[in-house]
Design a protein around this nucleic acid. Structure first.
Length: 116
DNA sequence: CGATTGACGTACG
DNA sequence: TCGTACGCCAATC
């Protein structure tokens, strides 16, 4: 009765929330989010959670989450692989050959930005 | 309940 | 410097 809504405390929601906190025009890495969530070395779980982002009721800007190399590793998981790059460029992020330019300059680290 | 997978990361050769 | 192997944690089958 009291549970009118199922609270999804899954790791997914945690990643989804952080992903939504990413400012427009900024990008982050799976490892950064993983560390922020406490997963630490298991950046894989973050990527896995991103896969579930599609199932989240909220819109998760997964296109702002890249791997440690600033490479659009998960572009294939979008409706269209070109859409991810298109979205990033639309936000002012230059992407060449699936590689984000000035990745370290637009890199948004939740551990630094949120803990500031 | 056990084995496999996964949008990563780091270490080693 | 580049390529390959392993580890890590959680979800899914």
């Amino acid at each position: 009765m009291a549970r009118e809504k199922k609270k999804e405390d899954s790791f997914f929601d945690l990643v989804h929330e952080v992903a939504r906190l990413i400012p427009r025009g900024r990008v982050t890495s799976y490892g950064a989010i993983a560390k922020y969530l406490g997963t630490g070395k298991s950046a894989r779980v973050v990527g896995y959670a991103m896969n579930a982002a599609h199932t989240s009721k909220f819109r998760v800007p997964a296109h702002r989450v890249l791997n440690r190399n600033g490479l659009l590793t998960g572009k294939h998981h979008f409706g269209s692989p070109d859409e991810m790059q298109k979205l990033l460029e639309k936000e002012g992020v230059k992407v060449i050959k699936d590689q984000v330019q000035d990745f370290k300059e637009i890199f948004w680290d939740p551990n630094t930005e949120l803990d500031l």
